[in-house]
Design a protein around this nucleic acid. Structure first.
Lengths: 108, 108
DNA sequence: TTTATACATCGCAATATTACGATATATTTT
DNA sequence: AAAATATATCGTAATATTGCGATGTATAAA
C-alpha cells in the first residue's frame, strides 16, 4: 500500500515521527550540519556545498522547514535559513526522557 | 530517481540519517514507546497493541533492529525485544551538541 | 527596462516504503 | 508425532520519496 496509517497513532507520535522522517536523509543532515557550521546561511551556499542540484536542495529545505527544523527569512534576493532551536530542544528532551525510562527498566 | 546519493555524505551523516529514518514512522515510534511502557517486551503483545497486521509489525521491528534502536533475544517461543540504550544515548548527545552549537550562533 | 541572481515549483522517471495475506520456520505443548 | 504458538519472510499492490531539468517568480543590478 505505501500509505501510513497516521490516524491510528497519537498526535505526539505522528509529530515525532514526521520530524524524525525529515532528518532521515543524509542530505538533510548535511544541510543541518552546514547551517550549524557557518553562522549565516544562504541557500546558494548550500548548493555549492552539496553534490545535488539546486532544485533538489530546495526540496530538502522545504521538508526541513515543514517539519519545523529550520526557518527561513527573506534577505533581499536570497533567503537566510536557520536552525529552529525549539524543535531540536524538544527532540533532545524526547531522547533524554527515553534514556531515563530505559534506566528504570528491569527487563533485559 | 528515488535513490539516495549515500556515497556523497559522511559515514556519520549516513548513520544519523538511517537512525532518524527508522524513527520516521509513527508505528515505530509507538513500538518504542510501548517497549518503554511495559518492562518486558514480546512481539505478540505489540501485535495486540497496534492496529497493524503481524507481518507489518514484524517488518517494523526488523527496521528498528537494523538501525540499532532495539535488540531482540529469543525467549522460548517468543522474542524479547528491548531498547538499545546506547543508540538512544548517542542520539540524545547528537541533539545536545546541536543545541550548544545553535546557542553559539550569531545569525538570526 | 533588460538582465542577472536566488530560489521555488512542476513534471517526470527510478526506486523505496508501507501494508497485507499467505506461507515458512522454529519452539512448545499435547 | 501432531497441533498450537510466535515470529519471519515472500510476493504484491498502492503510494511516497528522491533527483533532475525545465521553467516560473521575484528582487536587485546594470
Amino acid at each position: 500500500m505505501g500509505v501510513t496509517k497516521t490516524n491510528h497513532f497519537t498526535d505526539q507520535q505522528n509529530k515525532i515521527a514526521s520530524i524524525a522522517k525529515a532528518l532521515g536523509h543524509p542530505a538533510r543532515i548535511a544541510i543541518i550540519e552546514y547551517l550549524l557550521k557557518v553562522n549565516a546561511c544562504i541557500c546558494s551556499d548550500i548548493v555549492d556545498e552539496l553534490p545535488l542540484a539546486q532544485s533538489t536542495i530546495s526540496q530538502h529545505l522545504k521538508e526541513l522547514k515543514n517539519a519545523g527544523l529550520i526557518k527561513g527569512s527573506i534577505e533581499g534576493t536570497s533567503i537566510c535559513y536557520c536552525i529552529e532551536e525549539t524543535t531540536f530542544a524538544m527532540l533532545k528532551q524526547y531522547f533524554a526522557d527515553i534514556i531515563v525510562s530505559v534506566n528504570n527498566q528491569k527487563c533485559c
